[in-house]
Computed example of a mutant assay.
Amino acid sequence: MTQKASAENLGSELLQTIDTEEIADNSMRRTVEILLNLIEQQQVEIKELREENQKLRDELYLRNVTLNLKLIKLVLFG
Rank of each mutant, 00 (worst) to 15 (best):
R29Q: 13
I72T: 02
I34R: 14
A7L: 11
R63W: 04
N64T: 06
M28Y: 06
S27L: 03
Q3C: 08
V65P: 01
S27F: 07
N68R: 11
K55T: 15
R30Q: 08
V65F: 13
N64Q: 08
V44A: 01
K55V: 06
E21S: 15
E33M: 12
L35W: 09
E21L: 05
L14V: 12
N64E: 09
L56I: 07
S6P: 00
T17F: 08
K47H: 14
V44H: 09
K47N: 07
L15D: 09
Q42I: 11
I39P: 01
V32L: 12
L71E: 05
L62Q: 01
N26M: 11
V32G: 02
N64Y: 05
Q43A: 12
E52L: 14
A5T: 03
S6D: 08
N64I: 02
S12T: 02
L67K: 04
G78P: 04
K4R: 13
L67E: 04
I46W: 02
L14P: 07
A7K: 12
Q41T: 09
E8Q: 11
K55N: 09
L74M: 06
L15C: 05
N68G: 03
I46Q: 02
E22H: 08
E8V: 14
S12K: 10
L56D: 03
N64K: 08
V32R: 12
E33V: 07
L14M: 06
S12Q: 09
K70E: 13
